[in-house]
Design a protein around this nucleic acid. Structure first.
Lengths: 234, 234
DNA sequence: ACAAAAGTGTTTAGCTTACACCCATGG
DNA sequence: CCATGGGTGTAAGCTAAACACTTTTGT
């Protein structure tokens, strides 16, 4: 093939705006929350929206997603997962844009509250969200579906908890993700039998007089088990 | 925001070439296969590659993927699933391209052999693939990983078999997907207990003198069970 | 009659589920 | 001393796993 034809091959194709949008999950006490933003630009200025940005020519998709996360939460070591593209021709009246949606799991206690204010953002309980622009509602629903599925075979739930957490807290989290109650004894048995938690000597007394022991997720132990082919199931 | 700023918002962003690439799975007797193509254009003309195409301005990502599938196999009702984006800045030396990879499951008996020839394509056993260009090797590995995971909770395996198939055939397929042997009696028990197969009166005698009964996948029964919340597990 | 693949049940072990009482502490 | 949430064990039912012989039929 001649270099002229090659040129035509790549240049004959249409370039398209590529955006990324982030569904940011957090977990507070017993509810799953989403970080939403008041959109600053037209169309739909002033309405609630996911946070997003265009992919720049100098960055890959994961880099763009990390950048957005850092700009909006101040965090740079965030669990981030691509969840698919949204490409309807009419999805954005402003222009033809293909968006690659991502969901992120962040620890509410770590993110910079100040940035939330700067961005006119707000945490909403997952089951009490405002109307969202464009196809952001659909993205949001797909994100929870993916999160649920993923949480079944990988311990990503821990990404939503502080470094030290109690078993009751962990159970509340999984209950929030699966939207159903779990038996306390069975939950404990199962999670402890996986041996991926390190029990600490401290107690957290914010929720009861007796206090609950704090645990820490042991990444190393988990990865060992994973290599040996364990299956993490609720 | 003024319309000038708006203009700047969308126009200030960089447009990027967006491609889709398809990992096309087939199943033959007892091996999982991939349809690969001799690349016609530079760079890498003449080397083996997945089939792909740029997303046109008039089509969505799923539409582009279907188009590619139809052009390369002649099939238009194909099981097709997006599996993620590939966006390294240097991934394609020809130009900066973001590719959204998809995997497809097709029935070897249905696709048009003639098109395979037209495209200088060839079916390769999954575990004996030639070197592939760009990041196509990585895509291929990710595709099988996704297929395996997905096959655990959705009966997508059937997309790889002809409409009528025998239980031994089905078992061979799942063994190929999971790369491990399954017990014949347990497999049968499990699959039949799901009640998603319709037993026919015909036998297929191509593989034995006795012959094996043919079955058909019952989409309706499956969807009913799905609504009631069954879990499809190997 | 025999070779080659299809078909069929039972037993055992492990896992999941359901369930109720005592413990520690701060007020 | 009592109210509140944290912690613990066991029995029953169910699902998964292991395992070997009979059936059919073309040659």
């Amino acid at each position: 093939m001649s270099s002229a034809t090659l040129k035509k091959y790549y240049e004959g194709a249409e370039k398209i705006l590529v955006a990324i949008d982030c569904i940011i999950f957090g977990f507070d006490k017993e509810t799953l929350k989403l970080l939403l933003f008041k959109r600053k630009i037209a169309p739909f200025a002033g309405e609630w929206s996911l946070i997003g940005s265009f992919v720049q020519s100098g960055e890959s998709v994961p880099e763009a997603a990390q950048r957005v996360l850092e700009e909006s939460t101040g965090l740079n070591n965030v669990y981030l997962e691509e969840m698919g593209s949204y490409s309807d021709l009419q999805r954005d009246p402003g222009s033809r844009v293909i968006s690659i949606a991502h969901y992120a799991l962040i620890r509410l206690d770590e993110h910079k509250q100040q940035l939330v204010e700067t961005h006119q953002a707000r945490w909403f309980p997952y089951d009490d969200l405002p109307d969202l622009i464009l196809d952001h509602q659909e993205m949001t629903q797909n994100a929870l579906a993916k999160l649920r599925r993923k949480a079944r075979y990988q311990p990503i739930g821990f990404e939503l908890l502080p470094e030290k957490f109690t078993l009751p807290q962990l159970q509340l989290l999984y209950q929030a993700i699966y939207q159903k109650k779990l038996d306390r004894r069975n939950f404990r048995k199962k999670i402890l039998s996986m041996k991926i938690l390190e029990k600490l000597d401290e107690k957290d007394k914010t929720n009861s007089r007796k206090g609950a022991f704090l645990y820490r997720f042991d990444e190393k132990k988990y990865q060992e088990l994973e290599r040996k082919g364990m299956n993490f199931e609720l």
